[in-house]
Design a protein around this nucleic acid. Structure first.
Lengths: 339, 339
DNA sequence: TCGTTTATGGTAACCGGTGTCAATAAGTCT
DNA sequence: AGACTTATTGACACCGGTTACCATAAACGA
């Protein structure tokens, strides 16, 4: 490793520019009460030296860190990555960095872990994904620790400043309504895990659509998974083994919808001729399987972007969207029921 | 937001315990030269107060941060997430946190960006994924900045301390060898992007296997993508349009292999009866499409774990594995060629 | 012309830890 | 007993920024 010279500090800049630390600090922080000539002089020295302020020192003095945390316990890898991309998009060009922290929602130490994470890193703010976000305790904890937070949800969990929300239920209702109008009357459901608000909302959307047409969701056509492919596969086999078979299945996320497709093809069924499949999320896997999956697009990335903005620009939190619309993306896995 | 009392500091602890700051510091750092009675007394106060040392202050005093960066420009989302999981696994229970930073490998400012990232956050160490890791400049930069680093690679890029490597070429050679022994002689290739060492290694493995059997890779059966589904789809259509059609296709990653499958099914081909497909990565998508994909498993997660250990325990870097074996995972997308 | 305001920049203390080195108490050796 | 270690602890400066407050000089009003 090269024997490099130590990094220049604010003192070096001050000395070379012939001013005081404070003046350099003013330049760094764009203080308005500063002579232009002085500013230019200092700026030049900063550039020459390649000076970068030490964030630890700033963090110490300002009593806040420039780290935004992402807290999740989400089996959906693709979703988590989209979230990261969205957040980083908002943070680009700022001094903030993104720290990721998966947690175990079933652990008895869940909130101790989160508290420890926030305190340990003295986080500036956190974005919490479902299902952890659905627990109000997380909001209480953040308030107690003086840490900003935004929760992602499928329903009104909190006030606008601390929430990004999508209208899952409505979007599902519309998508299923279309299936019904296409002739499907026997529609199965591979539901999400019990503790998830998102799972309940999506199922509620399905039931509302059925009800509106005088239909219902028979118990034997419903099985639940935990948003993973494997769990969806098990659930799908159960639903598909019923007699008469459903002509359409709505899965609470794409990964499980892919599993439904997998199970159907395995049984020699033709999709969509014999079975229509509707997913939720619009993750890449949905677009990449064959036939490509009809799904409800959830603007995860845009939500994450907005959440990050709310976190890093607290004073303008309200300017950034809190409510997002999910929408149907029709591809080849659904089709009108023939005769 | 609650009006919470300020966090206790080392001074509070010192005062309440009736000792000096330094002694408290010794307790925190498990210094051996400390009287047991004193240690117990201080520990008790720390516990009562719920004192947590301020990492910014420590970082400032120690001149190093407890952040590990992950630098990548990798289109494979699933891979990136596996890497994060592996790293976090190694970092669990330590004071380190993981900071993620996607970069644009084609940007003219790539190394400026990386430099800025490292300097800005005063990173303790970084883990660099291909293809960025394949550029030696990144090693030079880290050396210059005094930042620890580990590069992930498909070939010997660096010394053991700064590298985790897998034997892609060999694994591909063996997998393809099996295809050939199963009767396939006309084997196509959907290659990875030009600048990627991993792409070259995988293709080399294919060519070596072919050569060993007196075969070769005809130009018209080779097309390249950039590891994304869409690019793989375009490449696949090109390869599948050749006459005679290949009876097997090796794609440089699973995502593109999924695209090959997609294109094949779209054309009404039966897989694997008419076309065997071999992927690389063993990402979930491969296991979830139908038929499930035969692929080469790359121990991404284990590599990331080892990389993180090397970063956070520099003194024991050599103890952690640097070389990993990839291996064939046979599923249903490949089959012997029927005469 | 003098006192008052306004702009500008300096000094010192502080954020919450760490290192260095000296001071003290206790034990060991001759 | 006196000198020498050794174990334990504290005083103090320092890491690299920030804020609070003061000092100076220029500009302005009377």
């Amino acid at each position: 490793m090269a024997n490099r010279e130590p990094k220049p500090t604010i003192n070096d800049v001050a000395r070379l520019a012939g001013v005081s630390k404070k003046t350099v600090s003013r330049v760094i922080n764009n203080s308005p009460l500063l002579n232009d000539a002085t500013r230019d002089k200092v700026t030049a020295v900063i550039r020459d030296l390649g000076y970068v302020p030490n964030p630890q020192a700033r963090a110490l003095a300002l009593r806040r860190n420039f780290l935004i945390g992402l807290i999740h316990d989400n089996p959906n890898a693709q979703m988590v990555l989209s979230v990261q991309e969205g957040m980083l998009d908002a943070m680009k060009g700022t001094e903030f960095a993104l720290v990721v922290r998966p947690v175990d929602r079933k652990s008895p130490h869940l909130f101790d872990d989160i508290r420890h994470f926030i305190e340990q890193q003295r986080l500036y703010g956190i974005y919490v994904l479902p299902p952890v976000s659905e627990n109000d305790e997380v909001a209480r904890l953040c308030a107690e620790l003086g840490c900003r937070y935004v929760r992602m949800g499928s329903a009104r969990l909190d006030d606008e400043e601390h929430l990004v929300e999508s209208n899952d239920r409505e979007a599902v209702r519309e998508a299923v309504d279309k299936l019904i109008r296409d002739g499907h009357t026997r529609i199965g459901h591979v539901a999400g895990p019990d503790g998830f608000r998102s799972a309940r909302e999506r199922e509620a959307g399905l039931r509302e659509a059925l009800l509106a047409h005088g239909l219902s969701l028979p118990d034997e056509l419903r099985a639940s998974g935990n948003y993973t492919f494997d769990s969806g596969y098990t659930a799908a086999k159960q639903v598909l083994s019923q007699n008469p078979r459903p002509t359409a299945i709505f899965a609470a996320n794409d990964e499980m919808a892919a599993a439904v497709l997998h199970a159907a093809l395995e049984q020699g069924l033709e999709v969509p001729r014999q079975l229509s499949i509707l997913g939720f999320d619009d993750t890449p896997i949905g677009a990449h399987i064959w036939p490509p999956l009809s799904t409800v697009r959830w603007p995860i990335r845009a939500m994450a972007r907005s959440a990050a903005f709310k976190l890093i620009q607290p004073e303008r939190a309200a300017e950034h969207k809190s409510f997002f619309r999910s929408e149907l993306v029709e591809r080849a896995s659904t089709a009108p029921l023939k005769g």
